[in-house]
Computed example of a mutant assay.
Amino acid sequence: MSYNNFWIGLYTTDNPVQLNTTWQWTDNTAVNYIPWYNVIPSLDKKLCAISGYNYNGFSNADCTASYLAVCKQPPLETIPTSNPVSTTTFKPINPCDISMQTFSNYFIPQVKMNWTTAEEYCELCGGYLTSFHSTDELNTIVNYLNAGNYWTGLYSDNNERTWKWKDGTTYDFSYWYPGNPNQAGASCANLKIIDYNPYGMANTPNCSTSLYGICKYRQTEIMT
């Protein structure tokens, strides 16, 4: 049982969770505030929400997991009121309105996500997880980034034997970090950058790992 996270009464019946999923409170009060930890919930089959000490915001989790619970006790006396019950409709934040690092033909949402969510995020905001097709293009990206790991659109659907770009472009250029690709590794690849060391693609983090994603605008939606 985790003592860092706590069940709250927020849940959904939409399975799996989507960007436009409707959330409800178990006490039937209006849903007018959802401070998701990563701006959006995890887009998967985690239908119940938790809050915790180790991050600032809510996250969705498997409803069968074990956590402590935060309970809200109703008042001992109910004071009659003529005020109508709140009917506020909650409008989720538009993910594309959050802070983005933009450069050249690329944008990086300033929230960390797993690979699947990062791709959906890129598509929602007019792009795809990036591909690159030359050393010059790769260097353009690397020159704007700090050391770390960043999701790209490179993936494999045959146990890491061959690789494809999520945007459908031809896999005609590769620049792997030493020791990669690892056939026992993940089926999605990230750009790995380490200070004073070579950079390149790697498939060591699991696809469910939360990383920043590098998005490339579709050619018709390039920001100027």
Rank of each mutant, 00 (worst) to 15 (best):
Y67E: 05
F107D: 06
M201K: 07
Q110P: 01
Y155F: 15
W176N: 14
Y171I: 04
P198I: 10
N190L: 13
Y155V: 09
P35V: 07
C96K: 06
N182Q: 11
Y150N: 14
K46Y: 12
T89M: 03
Y53M: 11
I50P: 02
K164Q: 14
W163G: 05
V142H: 03
K45C: 06
T87P: 00
D14M: 03
P178R: 01
L10S: 01
S156L: 01
S42T: 13
G200Q: 06
W163S: 02
E120K: 12
W165R: 12
N4A: 11
Q18R: 06
F107C: 12
P84W: 00
K192V: 02
V39D: 08
Y177C: 07
Y175A: 15
N5F: 03
T102L: 09
T29K: 02
F6G: 04
D62F: 03
C188M: 07
D44H: 04
A118Y: 05
D44S: 14
D167S: 12
R161Q: 15
I194A: 06
K164T: 08
T87H: 00
C96E: 09
S66E: 10
A69S: 14
N190S: 14
S86W: 00
L154C: 10
T209M: 11
V17F: 00
L211C: 04
P109Q: 10
Y155N: 08
E77R: 08
A186W: 08
N4D: 13
S42F: 01
L10Q: 04
F103G: 03
T162G: 05
P198Q: 02
I108V: 13
A49I: 10
Q183I: 13
M1A: 12
C207A: 07
N149P: 01
Y217A: 02
K46R: 15
Y177A: 06
I79T: 13
E119H: 07
T169L: 01
T170H: 05
N182G: 07
F173H: 07
D27K: 00
I214R: 02
K46M: 08
W115P: 06
G213I: 02
V70Y: 04
S210N: 11
N28Q: 09
Y106N: 06
T130C: 12
C207G: 05
Q101S: 12
I40P: 07
N32T: 12
D14E: 15
L154F: 08
E77P: 04
C63Q: 03
P205E: 05
P74G: 01
S82T: 14
T12A: 07
P80C: 02
E119Q: 14
Y37N: 10
P35T: 04
T169P: 00
I50V: 15
Y3S: 13
G200W: 12
L76H: 05
D97T: 05
K166L: 15
N146S: 13
T152R: 05
A49N: 02
Y177V: 09
W23F: 09
S99K: 09
T209L: 06
I108A: 06
C48Q: 10
N60F: 01
T13L: 13
K45Q: 11
T135C: 04
N20A: 10
L129W: 08
D157N: 15
F6E: 10
T102Y: 09
Y212W: 06
G127F: 13
N190R: 07
P35N: 07
L19N: 04
S134Q: 11
P92T: 11
E119W: 04
Y3V: 14
M1K: 06
